[in-house]
Design a protein around this nucleic acid. Structure first.
Lengths: 334, 334
DNA sequence: ACTGGCCCTGTAATCGATACCACGTGACCG
DNA sequence: CGGTCACGTGGTATCGATTACAGGGCCAGT
């Protein structure tokens, strides 16, 4: 338990202390067949006494398994992704895996760097929320034969499982709610055109048949404020705004407040992604809520299956509309 | 660049391809003295052609350095910690280090498990936001001679550097603001008594001389709602609530809304930790804002210094009061 | 009593890199 | 012209584990 001089104890020390070979120690620790109950207890006693813990690096080098998943996330400060990260981590832990979270900050470069870094560390599998459509980094993952699952967003020619939420229905309903509340011209604060979610949400919402004014943001707070500012400055200002992500929604709210515009009387508002504080606003914000926890969990499950050798199918969960009041009330004249 | 059969290329392959020894390849890749410009380019060409990337596990095993920091955080979904995590990660990256984020979920057990796991992985240093005061896990870190820095919270007999924010001044001012607004009996939703921040904030606020009703929460949302409910149900209900953490503040806000109580007329409110959406509420929430980004950055810097062999001092940043209106206006009769 | 087989254990190779040491070569100097 | 020194390079031990293989002891069967 107590080493006078601090020095990491190795399997060799344990072997010596227990009067056996390192092979035997290893066998005991890995529950392998063989060791006699008697040697077993002797080894375990030595382990305990020396406070021995196996060096994970050495072990992984030998076994080519790290029991570690890599998670590359677009933006850690985005609560949507933070929640996903947590769910992934929980599911992974339940299966004896550890997760390394890397934050790409919505940058394709940084994402590529992290993917490489995680591959270097020989993670057993990779979970990525792609920052952009650029698929070049995938080749690198494939070349290393590392299982890969895409989360939330997809990229061009991805052949790996994808886990995401489908908001088509919810966005159609949202268009209907806006129309019913008398909105005809709607300003959309869309995500980047080079992300699948950016494009899809816009496209699906466009099917609602409303007259759209579109400005693209980058899924971050400031871009939401900027986009809102631009939309609200236009000659015939839209009567409602829809932000396609919670952070841009936050930015839009800030801009509305700055301009002293009242929701929903001056301008209606809806946001993609729910947040715990949206119901606390006055009025509470109407949102498209994504099943974040399930997304994280399913993604982790898929990846673990892939690692185990199975061929999990794509997972498509459904987002749902939560009407709260920030779009105004339905008028008789629908 | 393209390997027909997927197989990881090792340094041996590169050596063979370039017609040199593995030692030379290693020297080139590590910028060591020696290699001739000519062999240099030849090796680099081979590296490029084979798409070789060194195995970080093997390298770390040999060098006993992983260029990795471990960050154990109390709760990843808490935006306060998420922001800290991001700052840590950014600072670490700037110095060529990678960060493994582990989420203890405010559980001492899970924290201990993760600390052990990170030690097993031979991180070069450890950054911990302790879940509780229990200091037993520190012995383990010390036994491995791994540099340690405590973040946000401290524990009993910690001999390592600590980075935190000092809210004494801000809390004193808050007490003054509340008093000026006519509040005398204040309900405090305090953090757990077995965390340093839980105790300190309460104690420092208590110095303000107000009549306090205290209920302890656990730094999470639900406990904030529960505590608020209890305080508001008491016979002579406090005229204001102070939540000692943003998540408990969120819970308290939800409870207030549920009861239809208006802030600040029915009950005043202040929260420890600022959040981007607090200014958007009606009224905007008065808060004690912590310098989260600086905390993360300073913690990372301290740890890196410690790793480099220096003896960084404790860092104590200051939190500041941001008065917004949720505590009511100062009345003439102060 | 001898032998075959099983069970437990130890020896040693191995994972993929780094680093120490020694060696060969060319240059420089006396 | 020979010796020394410096520099570039290769061979090999090593990091700390796992694991294939081999060997020794013991029991049972004939």
């Amino acid at each position: 338990m107590t080493e006078g001089v601090h020095s990491v104890t190795t399997i060799k020390d344990v072997a010596q202390h227990a009067g056996v070979s390192t092979a035997t120690v290893s066998r005991v620790l890995n529950g392998h067949a063989a060791p006699t109950p008697e040697t077993r207890t002797r080894v375990l006693a030595a382990v305990d006494e020396l406070g021995y813990r196996p060096n994970a690096l050495a072990r992984s080098l030998r076994t080519t398994s790290t029991k570690t998943l890599g998670l590359v996330i677009s933006d850690l400060v985005n609560p949507f992704f933070a929640e996903i990260a947590r769910a992934v981590e929980e599911e992974a832990r339940a299966h004896g895996y550890c997760v390394i979270v890397a934050n790409a900050d919505e940058s394709a470069d940084q994402q590529a760097t992290y993917v490489r870094n995680l591959l270097d560390r020989r993670v057993d599998g990779l979970l990525v929320c792609p920052a952009t459509d650029d698929p070049t980094w995938i080749a690198e993952v494939d070349a290393n034969d590392v299982p890969l699952v895409l989360l939330d967003r997809t990229v061009e020619g991805a052949t790996c499982p994808v886990v995401r939420a489908d908001g088509a229905q919810a966005l159609a309903e949202l268009a209907e709610v806006l129309r019913a509340a008398g909105h005809r011209r709607v300003g959309v604060i869309a995500g980047p055109a080079d992300t699948s979610t950016g494009r899809e949400r816009l496209e699906q919402f466009a099917r609602g048949g409303l007259d759209l004014e579109v400005v693209h943001g980058d899924f971050r707070r400031d871009s939401g404020a900027l986009a809102a500012a631009e939309l609200l400055s236009r000659a015939d200002r839209p009567t409602a705004l829809v932000a396609m992500d919670n952070l841009m929604g936050l930015g839009a709210l800030e801009e509305l407040r700055r301009r002293g515009l009242k929701v929903p009387d001056d301008v209606g508002l809806a946001v993609y992604d729910d947040q715990p504080w949206f119901p606390l606003l006055d009025p509470p914000i109407t949102v498209v809520a994504q099943p974040t926890v399930e997304m994280g969990r399913e993604a982790a499950r898929s990846l673990l299956e892939l690692i185990a050798g199975a061929q999990p199918a794509d997972v498509r969960l459904t987002a749902r509309l939560v009407v709260r009041g920030s779009c105004g009330e339905a008028t008789g004249a629908a």
